[in-house]
Each structure stands twice: as C-alpha cells, then as structure tokens.
C-alpha cells in the first residue's frame, strides 16, 4: 500500500456549524499520533443528496476536483462526515469503473488545469482509527475510562451503504462503532432503531422529526445515557431535533448526542472546552458529572 499522508476533509457542516467536532478530531487523533496534513483547496464534497439529485454529472465533476486536489497534493483523504464519505467514495468508485466517464470528467477538469488519475484513497476517520491506529492503541490512550456509560450508537446511512461501494463494515450487522466505543471504556448498547435513518435527506418538515422521535423513543427505552455518532448531519437531526420533538409532541428525552471523537477525547482527559462540549443544545453535563 502507499504511504501517503492523510489530509482531513472537513466538508461544510463541521468547520462552520460544529467546530467542536473538528477540535475533538484534531485533539484525539493528535494524542494517537496520527499526523494530519491540512489542505485548504477542498470545497463542498458536494453533498450526496441535494447536489446529486440536481445533476449527477455536475456533482461528479465537483467531487472529482476534490479527489484531484488530494492527488496533486499527494495525500489520501480522511472524511469526518458520512455525506462527504459517501460522495467521495462513490465518485472514486464510478471513475474507476467507467473509463469513458473518467475521460469525460477529466476533459472538464482540464479546463481548470487539473486531472484525476484515480489514486486517491478515501476513508472515514473511524476506518483510520480501526485500521491504522487499532483498538488496542486507542484503549491505551485512555486515561479516564467512561466506565458504566451506556452509549446508544447511531450509524446513520451513508457510512455503510450502498454496501457495494462503501465496504466499511457489514451494512446489516456493523460493529466498527461498537469496538471503538468499547475502547473508551463505555458500554455500547443495542436498540431496535440502531440502523434507522435520521431523515435529514427528506424534503419535509414533518417526516424527519417523526424519525428522530422514533429513534429517541428506542434509545430511551434501551436505557441509554447518551447517543454516540459520527456524522454532523445526523447530529443536527438529533441535537436540535430533540428540542423540536419536545415542542411538537411534548416528549422530552434530553439525551446528549456526542460525536465519537468527543467521547474519545473525554476518555483521553481533554477538557469540556477543548472538546466543545459546552456548545451542544442538549447538555452533556450528566455524562461529564459521572466521569470528570
């Protein structure tokens, strides 16, 4: 395999809306000595729902530009958002599968002085953690284990599916997040809506709120102390979404929603401010009180 350095691909939501996720990734991966090379030429991936629904080849052209930027900079890409993972992984799959399509896209890239050969590897950070760092080294980095904290994992859709393209884990019986959560000392718990979609891609005011409600009814019944996830879009559905569920259905869950690297960061001993845990709508204090 190549020995390329890893460039984080932050996408749109994380740097603008949830800098706490970016901070937690930089800090927890820094503790694990995963060197990251920042590239400032990346743009929106672009998103696999809105932009792709508008025109697939235009979507592919913008995605191919991002892949070509990484290739020019001689880095592999590490995504932190399931949407970015979906777009960049699918784009690299389509361009590898269809030579004619690749040439058509390259004719467009040529007009901005670029070309994509097809060598950029795209991985979500949980794959980097599992495959490059390994669960044992993560466990060794923990100084404040999250003992007795029950974490309901939310996988979201685009990390795992379409399985034909993603190959991150078994799409029906995934366990990558369970292993990573266990490494922090916390206990992953199963619940009936573990693999349900957050609903954010649905152009409706009503349907996503109902899906959020179903998921929180499920994790609350399972006795979760918090939800652990790896996608900023799902996070927005659930952090702000719980407040909307409370308003609409008069059902208060108040279950904190925590990005995986924030969980890991707590276990590695970083402070609340260092991990931006004070920026959440649903307060994380109940968890922090038990470990800090």
């Amino acid at each position: 395999m190549n020995e390329r350095k890893i460039a984080p691909f932050w996408g749109c939501m994380i740097p603008a809306k949830y800098p706490q996720m970016e901070a937690s990734i930089r800090r927890s991966l820094g503790r694990l000595e995963v060197p990251l090379v920042d590239i400032d030429r990346f743009t929106c991936c672009p998103d696999p729902i809105y932009f792709k629904a508008r025109n697939k080849e235009q979507w592919l052209a913008v995605a191919a530009r991002n892949l070509a930027v990484a290739e020019e900079e001689d880095v592999d890409v590490m995504t932190a958002c399931s949407g970015c993972t979906s777009t960049l992984r699918e784009a690299s799959f389509l361009l590898a599968e269809d030579e004619e399509l690749k040439e058509r896209i390259n004719r467009r890239l040529a007009r901005i002085g670029m070309r994509y050969e097809g060598t950029t590897r795209v991985r979500h950070l949980v794959e980097v953690l599992r495959d490059d760092v390994g669960v044992d080294r993560i466990r060794e980095s923990v100084t404040r284990p999250l003992n007795d904290i029950k974490v309901a994992i939310h996988y979201g859709c685009h990390l795992l599916k379409p399985s034909q393209i993603m190959h991150v884990d078994d799409a029906d019986y995934p366990e990558i997040l369970e292993r990573l959560v266990e490494a922090t000392g916390a206990t992953p718990i199963n619940h009936r809506e573990r693999l349900l979609c957050c609903g954010k891609g649905c152009l409706s005011d009503e349907i996503p709120i109902q899906m959020t409600r179903d998921i929180f009814a499920s994790i609350s019944q399972a006795g979760a102390d918090c939800m652990g996830l790896i996608c900023p879009t799902c996070f927005s559905s659930f952090d702000l979404g719980q407040i909307m569920v409370a308003r609409k259905f008069d059902e208060k869950y108040e279950i904190p929603v925590i990005y995986y690297c924030q969980l890991l960061g707590i276990a590695q001993g970083f402070s609340i401010e260092e991990l931006g845990l004070d920026l959440h709508r649903v307060k994380v204090d109940s968890i922090l009180a038990r470990v800090c």
């Binding site: 729902i49 859709c157 609903g199 891609g201 409706s204």
Partner: peptide
Amino acid sequence: QFIWLCSTCYACQE
C-alpha cells in the same frame, strides 16, 4: 412533491 421525500437511506437498494 413525493419524489423529493426520499431520504437516500439506501434501505431499499440494499
């Protein structure tokens, strides 16, 4: 309006 309701979760595709 209904074609825009797909949330692209891939459950059907899988």
